[in-house]
Amino acid sequence: MSDEPKFFEDYEIGESFVTPGRTITETDVVTHAMHSGDWQPHHTDAEFCKTQPFKKPIAHGTLTFAFSVGLIFRAESANPNVMNYGYDKIRFPALVFPGDTIKVEVKITAKKDHHKIKTHGLLTQTETTVNQRGETVAFVEHILFVTRRTPLD
């Protein structure tokens, strides 16, 4: 992890890193329900969950996503040259339960010029969140708006 902010030109397709882990707690799930207003019974009603195939409350997909974003910020120094441009293909292919520990595998998969703004480029990084068993529990293509060291003509 470098303390020098990177510019668009400094990123390479294929570069990657893995974040530290974080264990999801029951408190996390309830707090997320409070913040989001999503009190669906499969997140917060243990008795209901006993009637479902997964048998116990599950974390919200949006909680998994939000914590994944936070883990990435824990792994990288703040960079004033990078801003969020958007997310594509958000998926939650496996459930997360309180007690699961997640981490994020991040990889730069594409670089391109911004179609209008010559001072910036667009990076795509895949962010694959896995649990302690290595199962993918979330996947997203994250588009980043990154300052160029040298603007295009």
Rank of each mutant, 00 (worst) to 15 (best):
residue 1 M to T: 11
residue 2 S to H: 10
residue 2 S to I: 11
residue 4 E to H: 08
residue 11 Y to C: 10
residue 12 E to G: 02
residue 15 E to M: 13
residue 16 S to Y: 08
residue 17 F to V: 07
residue 18 V to F: 02
residue 21 G to N: 11
residue 23 T to E: 15
residue 24 I to A: 12
residue 26 E to D: 15
residue 26 E to N: 15
residue 28 D to M: 12
residue 29 V to C: 06
residue 32 H to T: 03
residue 32 H to Q: 10
residue 36 S to A: 12
residue 37 G to M: 10
residue 38 D to P: 09
residue 40 Q to I: 00
residue 41 P to D: 12
residue 43 H to N: 02
residue 44 T to Q: 01
residue 44 T to L: 08
residue 49 C to A: 05
residue 49 C to E: 04
residue 51 T to G: 14
residue 51 T to P: 01
residue 52 Q to D: 03
residue 52 Q to I: 02
residue 53 P to G: 10
residue 55 K to S: 13
residue 56 K to D: 04
residue 56 K to A: 14
residue 57 P to D: 05
residue 57 P to M: 02
residue 57 P to F: 10
residue 58 I to V: 15
residue 60 H to W: 01
residue 64 T to N: 09
residue 64 T to F: 02
residue 65 F to D: 02
residue 69 V to W: 10
residue 69 V to P: 00
residue 69 V to M: 15
residue 71 L to I: 09
residue 74 R to F: 01
residue 76 E to W: 09
residue 79 N to E: 10
residue 79 N to V: 08
residue 82 V to W: 05
residue 83 M to I: 07
residue 83 M to W: 07
residue 85 Y to Q: 06
residue 85 Y to P: 00
residue 86 G to P: 04
residue 88 D to G: 06
residue 88 D to I: 05
residue 90 I to W: 06
residue 91 R to C: 06
residue 93 P to N: 07
residue 95 L to H: 07
residue 99 G to H: 02
residue 101 T to V: 02
residue 102 I to Y: 01
residue 102 I to W: 00
residue 103 K to E: 11
residue 103 K to C: 14
residue 104 V to F: 01
residue 104 V to Y: 01
residue 105 E to Q: 12
residue 112 K to E: 13
residue 112 K to I: 06
residue 113 D to L: 07
residue 115 H to E: 10
residue 116 K to P: 00
residue 117 I to R: 15
residue 120 H to F: 08
residue 120 H to Y: 09
residue 124 T to K: 13
residue 125 Q to T: 03
residue 128 T to F: 03
residue 129 T to N: 07
residue 129 T to P: 07
residue 131 N to V: 03
residue 131 N to M: 12
residue 133 R to F: 12
residue 133 R to T: 11
residue 137 V to A: 08
residue 137 V to F: 06
residue 143 I to K: 14
residue 144 L to S: 12
residue 144 L to N: 09
residue 145 F to G: 03
residue 147 T to R: 15
residue 148 R to T: 06
residue 148 R to V: 06
residue 150 T to N: 14
residue 151 P to R: 08
